[in-house]
Write a protein that binds this DNA or RNA. Sequence first.
DNA 1: ATAAAATGCTACCAGTTTGTAGTATTTAGC
DNA 2: GCTAAATACTACAAACTGGTAGCATTTTAT
Lengths: 132, 132
Amino acid sequence: MKFSKTTEYSLRILSHMSLNENELHSAEGLYEHLKIPKKYLQRILTDLARSGFIQSIRGRNGGFSFARSIDKIYLSEIINATEGFDWTPKCMFGFGECALDSPCKMHDLWVDANQSMLTMLSSTTLADLKSK
Amino acid sequence: MKFSKTTEYSLRILSHMSLNENELHSAEGLYEHLKIPKKYLQRILTDLARSGFIQSIRGRNGGFSFARSIDKIYLSEIINATEGFDWTPKCMFGFGECALDSPCKMHDLWVDANQSMLTMLSSTTLADLKSK
DNA sequence: ATAAAATGCTACCAGTTTGTAGTATTTAGC
DNA sequence: GCTAAATACTACAAACTGGTAGCATTTTAT
């Protein structure tokens, strides 16, 4: 019950970039700040570009900058792009069928517990992280 | 952001066993009810025995039964045994250090969102699943 | 004793994720 | 034009997870 490394890295990268929202960030510079394995970070950056969160500028003096305003980038979108985000409340543990009676006794407990996290992630933007 | 298969399987196995709390359950019987890949289920069962949730009886007419009362087995314990459960609120995404200022602005959001799930998992026992 | 029925153990396989290496491509500055 | 600095691409390696196979061990029933 945790995020994948790729998701963690993506969130770290984007939240760090958002501190200087309008600047161009190079992979090298991000590496020095975040210490994410350089080549892997490189790949994640191009993935984030393909996903439309940031845009890349190639060549000398190139780098990455936001493709859209950070107050329109929700955390849930980022997670969705990196690892999928299927939190439909089918059953607590993602079972196809419940292990107990049907409907499974866990349903209500699970839905409630999941709701606040879902709500938080899908209502918080990168801009909120700076201002909150 | 989901449970591992092993965690899902473990929860299904134990919650199913708890429906007949005092009986001896064979791997074969559990397989027929739960359709978890047989050999993998076997391995999970021995792991659950090693973790102290159940005990195994070898030989003919052997099987698995609970090693302690199901009203003392919390869901969080099971998850902790199968995939680790480090939800200490160090930082939202499990960072060693925050990506933003310190203390990270996400802390409060994350802790709040996480709290209801944590509370639920660490206050619900296998016995509760039957009675709730 | 022996066979059957059960768990235990070890090794292996496949797919995914994480990480590394090298090369190609693009662009700015001189 | 050439070089340096940057991203893009491709291939591979390592580690982890999920799953399979076979044999070993233990115990009961006959």
